[in-house]
Design a protein around this nucleic acid. Structure first.
Lengths: 141, 141
DNA sequence: TTAATGTGCAACCATCGGTTGCGCGTACGC
DNA sequence: GCGTACGCGCAACCGATGGTTGCACATTAA
């Protein structure tokens, strides 16, 4: 949180092409836009733009050496970004699991209701009115 | 992997606004574009577009009920997306840790070299030439 | 039947990823 | 020392996309 907003970190790292640039830079340790672009499917300018974004996000730092500019990753910032992504992923996974359980429960209840309905009509109607979660949940938002 | 590419999943979930729509939809379980837009800082049309993207990515499914369209999350697909994000985050965290260790090692070596240089010149030169990792790694990309 | 409400479609704007083209500064070969 | 080659930065442009407004269509409700 020292330099830019966490939102900027996310935006910087969410872009697939930027991820590739970052990966490549990680593999080389330190590199210029030109050498990076040589191993990527887009031009030097595009790489430079991506590096600029990453720089603004604090994920890399630039070092001038003569006529070329060496970029290097900042591990601490990258780690922050990774944590943010992991947190988001965790939240999503939790939400998914929660809803999965809920849907399974609904399906099970529906099936049970159908079976009961075939056996005893009055009891089936009673269960349906009291226990169907779909109705109640429409209110919790 | 059943429906669209994993890339599409990522793209769908990477967008911050789309994440908000998804979060809200998760909280409500099932909702129409209009009701979602009522609790979001953008218009119904924008929400509808996001839902369309999420639909194409298989993350939500639409159910028509009269004149309104109810959207609901598909937990299995959301879980897939979460896994993809978590994997990416893990990779990033690993890379960050690796480079962090490496940089620490470099710093330590540099310091040791300076100290040695003050004491014995030849030994310092030998260590520097043999153990500096930055040079060797320039080739592995 | 008419008014209200939810959707879908189309045009439009800003931003962004990516390109090409050009000018400038630095390094290198003669 | 001078010209050439290389790396960089800037600007213009293009297509996709997030977001808007406006309108037409359908369904529901009075």
């Amino acid at each position: 949180m020292s330099e830019p907003a966490e939102d900027e970190l996310w935006a910087a790292v969410a872009e697939p092409s930027r991820r590739r640039v970052l990966d490549l830079l990680l593999a080389r340790g330190e590199a210029t836009p030109t050498t990076l672009a040589a191993q990527l499917p887009f031009t030097r300018q595009a790489v430079a733009k991506h590096l600029a974004v990453l720089d603004r996000a604090g994920l890399v730092e630039a070092r001038r050496s003569g006529r070329e500019v060496l970029y290097a990753v900042r591990p601490d910032r990258l780690d922050e970004a990774a944590r943010a992504m992991a947190a988001a992923a965790r939240q999503m996974a939790e939400a998914a699991a929660r809803w999965d359980r809920r849907l399974v429960a609904i399906k099970r209840l529906a099936e049970a209701a159908r079976k009961d309905e075939a056996a005893r009509e009055d009891q089936a109607a009673n269960r349906d009115g009291a226990a169907r979660p779909g109705e109640a949940d429409r209110e919790d938002g």
